[in-house]
Nucleic acid binder design. Structure first.
Lengths: 230, 230
DNA sequence: TTCTCGCAATTTGTGCACATCTTGTGCGGT
DNA sequence: ACCGCACAAGATGTGCACAAATTGCGAGAA
């Protein structure tokens, strides 16, 4: 691995953020790394290494790890280490069953009518989905799915629902990506199906039929999990 | 306030728990204090005072506060302090609307048939409810409602659903208690209604009709919130 | 009197050294 | 050769001192 002590990715880090902003940034970064399998399940994370990499001390980094542990992405054991969690099928099934229900609530509870800006964002996402057909990439696909999820989350104004849905999503996203990477799912087929789903959602958005969106997504989650199990 | 430096309540604390157990114990304790209005909304909490009271240093206590902040029970601001959060009606309404939906899932998603032990526990709770009629106490009522909630949570085996429902419950319980204490709700009336609800739930439990329980509870949550608003 | 500026007190956030716990390894006995 | 125990290495957990940030108070000028 490389020798850079400062964060080597993205922005050159504006060097003066509030403590809270620093925390959020590092948390999102770590979560992203875990969900994109940069830190695969079972991997041991070193507090001191991560601290020096982010240019902070162990104390604030431990707060990030504590939150990731609350979210179920890592587990820390005294004297042993901090490991990225894994998930068995039974646990995964529980999360998927719950997500299937919550996705309906996302388009029926405290909904906000889709703004033109939101529709434009989905159109952009559709473009990315179409582009993936000619250049398949599991990681790009995963990022697209994440952006799509976060975009559609704006359809509900119910803050607790948004928070819980987000946590559940980030809990399972990496497992799905892992299955794809292990070729247990045919990537090209998934992309085709996904592009079709985005198109359907976009049509429903333009019609303002939020209920339809909920059921489209529910069906997609259900089938996606079914394909994972086979 | 008194001068005791060690935890004055419950057990004499077995003095040697694992770090994780200590954390959980202090967290549950703090959450309980907040939900029973011992620490009312807006109250400023002192890290150093709490640390000395629990007989630990600020470092592990800060971890507890961080988790409570994640759960939305307190907020910490650099240079200002840590305050117990308050909730406006709009936010409260969002949580209640979501809880109304989740309570249905609790008796329809990954359900486990009610064990005789669980039924016996509910029968005990019914006894407590009846006893409250002759000796009304807002705090006792709140603790009864909490125990009832946690007991019925055993009807679902879906771990993520259990976790989320629990967090949402502890988020609103104190606000409800606050309204009762402020006499904006007639305590005696609430107890009567509640005892009736427990009886209905018990009957449904004995029949194994979980779906009925979901709708009984949903109705109760809905009406309870309606009475709060008036 | 009133407004403004600045300092001091208080509180949370951070860095670092040390305590505690687990695990692997190697030595010695059987 | 094998089993067991003790110790060392390395990880997380804790305590403490200091840094950073906000707020309130008070002195001084207009």
């Amino acid at each position: 691995m490389d020798e850079t002590l400062t964060d080597p990715r993205d922005e050159p880090l504006p060097e003066s953020l509030s403590a809270r902003d620093r925390f959020d940034k590092i948390h999102d970064d770590m979560r992203s790394r875990i969900c994109l399998l940069e830190y695969p399940p079972g991997m041991k994370l070193s507090e001191t290494e991560l601290a020096t990499e982010f240019g902070i001390s162990r104390t604030p980094l431990r707060r990030v790890l504590a939150r990731l542990e609350d979210e179920g992405l890592v587990t820390s054991v005294h004297g042993v280490g901090t490991m990225v969690t894994t998930m068995d099928m039974a646990e995964l099934a529980q999360v998927y069953r719950l997500r299937k229900e919550l996705v309906l609530l996302q388009t029926s509870l405290d909904t906000v009518p889709p703004s033109p800006a939101l529709i434009a964002r989905v159109e952009q996402l559709l473009g990315r989905a179409e582009a993936l057909k000619s250049a398949p990439s599991a990681k790009e696909f995963s990022m697209l799915d994440r952006d799509m999820f976060l975009t559609l989350l704006d359809l509900t104004a119910n803050a607790p629902l948004r928070l819980m849905s987000e946590r559940l999503y980030f809990r399972t996203a990496r497992i799905w990506l892992q299955q794809v990477t292990a070729s247990q799912i045919d990537l090209m087929q998934e992309i085709e199906i996904y592009a079709g789903e985005v198109q359907d959602i976009l049509d429903a958005l333009k019609l303002g039929d939020l209920d339809a969106i909920g059921h489209i997504r529910r069906g997609h989650i259900s089938l996606s999990f079914a394909r994972m199990q086979k």
